[in-house]
Design a protein around this nucleic acid. Sequence first.
DNA 1: AGCTTGAGTTTCTTGAGGGAACCCTGATTG
DNA 2: CAATCAGGGTTCCCTCAAGAAACTCAAGCT
Lengths: 152, 152
Amino acid sequence: MQRTNFGGMACSIARTLDVIGEPWSPLILRDVWVGATRFDQIQADLGISRKVLTERLNHLVDHGVLDRRPYDQRPRYEYVLTEKGAELVDLLIVMTGWGDKWLAGAAGPPVLYRHHACGEISNAELRCAHCGKPMHAGDITPLAGPGSGSTS
Amino acid sequence: MQRTNFGGMACSIARTLDVIGEPWSPLILRDVWVGATRFDQIQADLGISRKVLTERLNHLVDHGVLDRRPYDQRPRYEYVLTEKGAELVDLLIVMTGWGDKWLAGAAGPPVLYRHHACGEISNAELRCAHCGKPMHAGDITPLAGPGSGSTS
DNA sequence: AGCTTGAGTTTCTTGAGGGAACCCTGATTG
DNA sequence: CAATCAGGGTTCCCTCAAGAAACTCAAGCT
C-alpha cells in the first residue's frame, strides 16, 4: 500500500482525512458547493486528471458526502452535497479564512463571503457551542473520550 | 510533477492545501499541538515513515507553521506551533467535530475537548464574526474578492 | 450516417509514499 | 578511553498513485 489508510485510527481528524484528505477532494467539494456539479465542469475548473476525478468522486459518493444523480434521460449525472457533505463546507470556510489571513498577501482575498443573516461580508469564527465564547487552540484541553480505545 | 501544486490558484482553499494538504500534515500538527513535539515522538505516535516525516516537518517550517528549535546542548530539536500554526488548529477542531458527528459510530468520540472559558466539554460552532449568528454552507454566498484576478 | 456532448476508461510514465537499514553527533557508561 | 546509547535525521529500493492524453460508449441532433 502506497498511502497509509487513516480510517482505522482512533482519531476523528484521521478519520475525516480518510474521507476528504486525498489531494483534490476539498477542491472538488468546493466546486460542487458553488455550483460546478458536473464531471466536465469540475474537471475543466480544476484541471484535474479525469482518472483521478473519477476516483475522487466515487470515493466521496461511497462515503456519503456526495450524491450522484441523473439530470437527463441520457446517461448524464450531477453530483450534489448530502447533508453530511454540506457540513464539511464548514471546513472549507475555515480553510478559506486561514488562507485569506495568512496567504492572500497584498492582493487581498480571492473570494469573499456574504452572510445572509446580516447581509455583511464577513468571516467565520469558532465559538463554543456551550457558552458561545471563542474556542481556539489555547482555549481547550483534549481528553480521552468514550471511543478512545483506552482501557481506563 | 506527480502531485499538482495548488499554491498558484486564486483560491484560499487551494493555498491552504498547499501548506497542510499533504498526507500526514494535519496529523503532525495535531501531535505538535497536544505535546508530541519531537521527531521520534511524532514518528512513533503516527507510524509515519521517517523520510516522509522529515519532508513534512521541513515543509511546515518553511511555511512558517512550525518553528524548529533546539532544546538541548546536544543537537536535539523540537517543533512548536507558531501563531500562524496555532490558528490552523481551528481547522483541526472543525475536522474533529465533523468526524465525531459522522464517523465515530456507537463507540463515541475518541477525544473530547474541555473549553476553559466555561469548563464544559463542548464542540466548536462556526459563527459570523460580524453578527454572531451561525455561518454554515447555506448561510453564505461567495463573491469575487480583490485578489480574484478577474478584470472587473 | 455522421457529428456532438457528457461521462467516464485505458494506457503509459513519472515520482511520491513506505519500509528498513544506515549515519552522525554528543553524552553516558564500563 | 573504547563502547554504547539516543535523538534526529539520510539513503536505498520498491510499489503504486498522480498526471497526460488518447480512447470508448450511449443518446440525441442534423
